[in-house]
Design a protein around this nucleic acid. Structure first.
Lengths: 150, 150
DNA sequence: AAAGATTGACCGGTCAATCTTC
DNA sequence: GAAGATTGACCGGTCAATCTTT
């Protein structure tokens, strides 16, 4: 009841380590193959799924990103010609981000390759049972996070 | 066989999201309760486990951190009085990082609280079976990462 | 030449403060 | 006053280039 508590810590460290290594792999792949970071790809993906345009607040929420973090990311993506900002005609405080043609081309091209990589990283080593277990456990953790106000 | 491929992507996104939220929780806890970031706490923990002193290369490797990343982190921790650098008498190229008294006090104080938080985040929602499943699946993923040179 | 470490330029992110509009 | 967004100061991290020592 006292030494075995390390199970939780081991699980936490394993999760951290796995995330870091997976992230590195995906990041370097996207950079090498498409000259784009995952953060930018995620923005492009959200915009693409939303039909090409999305309000900044919605975008920030869907990306689990702070407003200021998004603002700066969009600055850099704007400078790279991947997106543009558009005013909201119904509310002068609000803005939209819109995919440029370049941004749309990039996300279209990168989508399949990214999908294949993830399938490779997970599918080559996990069976359906593994994936189900992973999803179940991670969902439980998330539920716990939403519940308690610690 | 074609629509079900999204299982891998869903798992990947769930892993990302869970990691992000857990990290935020732990980070804000450490900052609030101990005035320290997780990155710094991890350095202190490694040094403490090694008896107070560790070579920079070893430290970087154990933290899954690049040499330059560690160098800058140590600069900031040095400025905060948490560690000091020491020359290696046997190799003038190499350096050690050593815990200061302040650093040791901090890691000692924070250790229990950090441990309790992790036990809370995992232990309150997962049973032994869940943890075993999580560890098994994450280990499989890690093994796949080590194997392929993609 | 290779190894250990650092520096400069950059990316991505937070928080607190601010500005404008609602 | 609250909401949407941005800015400045900062943390943490990578990569490429560099310096010193081996």
């Amino acid at each position: 009841m006292h030494e075995d508590d390390d199970h939780w810590m081991s699980a936490w460290l394993l999760l951290l380590r796995t995330h870091t290594r997976l992230w590195e792999r995906v990041e370097s792949h996207m950079r090498r193959e498409h000259g784009i970071t995952v953060a930018r790809f995620d923005v492009l993906t959200q915009l693409n799924m939303a039909g090409g345009r999305l309000g900044l607040s919605d975008l920030a929420a869907s990306l689990l990103l702070s407003p200021s973090g998004l603002s700066k990311l969009l600055d850099r993506m704007d400078a790279s010609g991947l997106i543009v900002r558009e005013p909201d005609p119904d509310d002068a405080r609000a803005s939209f981000a819109r995919l440029t043609a370049k941004g749309r081309r990039l996300v279209t091209r990168a989508r399949t390759s990214h999908h294949d990589l993830v399938r490779h990283l997970f599918g080559d080593v996990l069976n359906e049972h593994d994936v189900a277990d992973l999803a179940r456990v991670l969902s439980k953790i998330q539920a716990g996070l939403n519940t308690d106000a610690t």
